[in-house]
Nucleic acid binder design. Sequence first.
DNA 1: CAGTGGTCTAGACCACAAC
DNA 2: TTGTGGTCTAGACCACTGA
Lengths: 257, 257
Amino acid sequence: MVLWQDIAEALRADIARGEYPPGSTIPKETELMAAHRTGRDPVRRAIAQLTAEGLVEPIRRRGTVVRHHPARRRINRSRLVYRDERGYYFDQIAQGWRPVQSPTVSRGPVPYDIAALLDLQPGAEVIIRDRVMGDPATGQATQLATSYIPAALDEELPVLSATETGSGGIYDRLEDAGYGPIRWTEAITSRMPGPVEARLLRLPPGVPLLRIVRLAASPSGQPLEVNDTRVNAEEWEISYPISRHASARPDRSMEVH
Amino acid sequence: MVLWQDIAEALRADIARGEYPPGSTIPKETELMAAHRTGRDPVRRAIAQLTAEGLVEPIRRRGTVVRHHPARRRINRSRLVYRDERGYYFDQIAQGWRPVQSPTVSRGPVPYDIAALLDLQPGAEVIIRDRVMGDPATGQATQLATSYIPAALDEELPVLSATETGSGGIYDRLEDAGYGPIRWTEAITSRMPGPVEARLLRLPPGVPLLRIVRLAASPSGQPLEVNDTRVNAEEWEISYPISRHASARPDRSMEVH
DNA sequence: CAGTGGTCTAGACCACAAC
DNA sequence: TTGTGGTCTAGACCACTGA
């Protein structure tokens, strides 16, 4: 075991024991150096590790603060699509969010993990529609939503790369063109943010993104669009109910509805 | 802008441009030091940042390797509970997994974000049932599942803290005791792993955990158990279908079923 | 405005796995 | 075996911000 890992483990245990409750600071660097009879690097390496785990956050002039873990707000995915005059919503909370930056539309190569969903070769060109949504009162972004549309579709329907796509947005335009009724599937996953995402969403170090990746397809299965929505994983969770047959004792059959 | 951020940004751009494809190595530390006319620390700080983002992984004697992002396998949550002679399953993929370590049962304080779900004070005592599930052939863990049960329930039903809980597991024991039919709700979120989780799941640095937090409650709403399941967020995603009324043009009503 | 963490230099030795 | 990244020391100065 190396020194910095020992220091990190000791601090982790102290934090778990409640010796340094959330909001308080752990000993300053010089104190940790003295306590472990070592130089500054091992101490800083240990703190860097705890920071990457999301446990602490160093703040200049104040010390290294044990982070609060805020109560998560819940995004309920009821598996129902909502719609109002502005467009489609896949949960009700999103209806309260508004753009806090102007949406942008550009063309570029399809990202690695979107390519397979759209049935495209890696690097194929797609339309990229970026939106930054958030609280209109504070201007703080809470959600980054990016749409990827195959360039081939745009040549048929140039409105797909327009800044304004009209009532109902691109989904209505696609259905107008005969690709409807659109079917959606969603998958939830997670990754660490890049610097731009971290800045826009004010993600402290060590906090991942929660991603909702939604594929829109025609009834025949042709992929039309992928929407990649990212939120702060520490502030949000995605919930849904689970059903089962209402009997006092569950069935022994394989599938209990 | 500081030097190490410039170096990180330059490397990020090079990787995105495809100059260093997945599996290849970026220039070695000494080369980056020369290219940016600087010492070793800024170079290492930049690489540490890219590592925390999950973009690269330094490997001794080989160099700093651009990471592959493996195709995600999908956990389908059909919102149906499955059951066989061994117990309950909330997706079919989990049925192929087996314990790769002996399950452990202990008592301890309830973790911060579980307390609210169980309607407990922070620090209240709970039964903690830990399971490490994985591929029985390789012994590699793919899922960490921890159950938290209020200690008060255990005093009434001591079997809840037994190593063997019998057919159907704790859910059947709870229903036997009149707490059924149990109702479940799930929420999906994410956080960075601690060192134990990272080791068991072989998580490279910069890869978060995907968490499925499931609450079991009695019909009257009494919380009975919380199950916290963690998987590698880079290898797994959680999917479900979305339904809508099958019309060529969506309704204009608020809720489109 | 003082003291904290942030950045950077120069140098040394270590450990490990690819060659 | 050897060269890569990993760890650690000692020291210097900077930048920001909360007391």
